[in-house]
Design a protein around this nucleic acid. Structure first.
Lengths: 239, 239
DNA sequence: ACCTGAACACCGTTCAAGT
DNA sequence: ACCTGAACACCGTTCAAGT
């Protein structure tokens, strides 16, 4: 593993064909290309959606190939005919979650980025265990469409390639890390006092960390501009 | 889970007694409190060290209670007499790793913090799967001693409690997230070309992200100072 | 081509029984 | 008090056999 030279989050968006098989080309080679052919038995969309539901209810650990098969009304072996492995299935679920993120198009670049990262946090938070999976498997599960939008926003803001890579990596790992670690101000059915304190605190903590990150990104952006300010000495040490 | 009101990383350092049992008080209640009593059979230190070795060799997934017992030369049941669960054992291993971090005492506050986070990354990187575990189980595995040092550094730098919480959380989740996701410029036994590119790129990416975070922290620090600058309007919205 | 039934090779955890 | 041997209740994955 880790054989490619460029492992940055931004660069990963260009390698979307690593899932193994892929959703297009699901139609058998000899089938008629005109009508719908998927009506026979299980469709991949059904499997992914059922898996996502189970994860939302019981977390990634609660997602079992047997339980999934039972919900689909088929046998274990039938599920394995459509999904090669649980890992590949979770990659599809992750992609499904990322696709739910709306594109933010109001405000400054940092406001837009922040809004989208908050959306990611909210979606991911509702699927316990997915944040950790996405984090660990970032190489394979990086969101293609979402990443393209973020890269475009950062490019428009004036970031160079190095800056984009660093900002995206920092954002991605902060958000997934925070969500993986039980950050959950949404499922707040506790006592009134606890809700007021915990939920607000955690949401504040999360947003404050995001603000710190984006503020740091803004600093590096200003430093990389041609007309650098006074205190923008660079310390390129340790080669 | 998540019942406490304050889940910040900084606050977690004060709750070190969640492991269940704990290493002191290991001596049976009726034993003589004078001589060493641990010489009978397995010691906890032995178990944790053997577990750490297996994790270093084969990762967290490669650590099996059976394999651990075999290496210790005992039976499965014997191991379970000392460690209540694999989860608790991994918490002890995590604590062991954190204790290896040296305290940085040179340079500015951000240089010291950066140095210690680089150390954490290096130690954690050598134990595959631990970064993810530490991240997911931050509530229970947060490093007590390491956290105290970091909090002290940030306090000396002038951060208030909220700032410390946010900075520590952002740092912790960035580092563990990055390490969990295969960040590994250390095990570089690839071709010359690949090593030059991948290793340098990843290490650079990691450090650049750290710099962004710390630069952002510096900005918030300056904004919270009494003599705030011109552009330091505050937007305490959403209550 | 798709699905069933049954198995394989593991897990973590428990527990009577020994010494 | 500590350890052994054996089991329990699961996993993910595979595969002959059916239709």
């Amino acid at each position: 593993m880790a054989e490619t030279a460029d492992d940055s989050i931004a660069a990963m968006a260009t390698r979307s064909d690593a899932v193994g098989g892929g959703r297009p080309a699901r139609v058998p080679a000899g089938a008629a290309a005109s009508a719908e052919v998927v009506s026979t038995g299980l469709s991949d969309r059904q499997i992914v959606e059922a898996a996502r539901q189970i994860v939302a209810e019981s977390g990634v650990d609660g997602l079992t190939m047997r339980r999934l098969s039972a919900r689909l009304g088929v046998t274990l072996g039938a599920t394995y005919r459509h999904v090669p492995t649980k890992h590949a299935l979770l990659l599809l679920v992750a992609e499904d979650l990322y696709d739910q993120i709306a594109v933010a198009d109001r405000g400054t670049w940092s406001e837009r980025v922040k809004q989208m990262m908050l959306d990611v946090a909210e979606v991911v938070r509702r699927h316990p265990g997915m944040a950790s999976f996405m984090n660990v498997n970032a190489r394979q599960s990086v969101p293609v469409k979402l990443n393209r939008v973020l890269v475009a926003i950062l490019q428009d803001a004036g970031f160079n390639r190095e800056g984009i890579d660093a900002v995206m990596a920092a954002l991605f790992f902060y958000v997934t890390g925070m969500c993986a670690s039980g950050f959950d101000p949404g499922a707040s059915r506790r006592s009134a006092a606890a809700r007021r304190a915990a939920v607000a605190d955690l949401q504040d903590l999360f947003e404050r960390g995001l603000d710190i990150l984006l503020a740091g990104a803004e600093v590096t952006l200003e430093q990389s501009r041609p007309q650098a300010r006074s205190g923008a000495r660079r310390e390129r040490s340790r080669t």
